[in-house]
Amino acid sequence: MNKRGFTLVELITTFALSAVIITILTNIVLIMKNMYNNTSAKTELYINQANLSNYINSKLNNGKLLTYSTCNDSNFCYTFTFSDGTTSRLVITDNKITFGDYNYVLKSNNYVEGESFDILNTAPLSDSTLNDSIMVINIPIKSKLYPKENFGVNIVYQYNSNTLY
């Protein structure tokens, strides 16, 4: 009798086990591929967020802000003047955020929603050299790919109201 080869039971068991393992591994590979694609899109948004935050914060903190005013513009627009005489304009349109010579162009999936500019004052302090006011510039950036997350910036600038007007 020819005793070479596998029995039917052995073959069926092997194929069944292989199919289960391959299915699980394929699922894992697909999930990791999805994770990789999501990561690169998210990373780009986070990098842009970091750049915008760094630029505005550096400009406000290093440039010694002297005054600010709204622009005669239908868009969200503020002009900041610094002690060295330079000015930077913050403008937010549907698909672009500009601060001075820095431009952040939003991709079609991304948009700004609910931007705001606030000044919070407190009562004068006994030590008049301490900061008593806070400027808050909030620019939320949303993405259709990640609707629950905010890739925008929240700039907080502390100052003494005697030095800024």
Binding site: L120, A123, I134, N154, V156
Partner: peptide
């Protein structure tokens, strides 16, 4: 010391 300013700051910083 300046509780009001601190509360404004904490609120502004989320």
């Amino acid at each position: 010391i300046n509780s009001e300013y601190c509360k404004n700051l904490v609120e502004a910083l989320n």
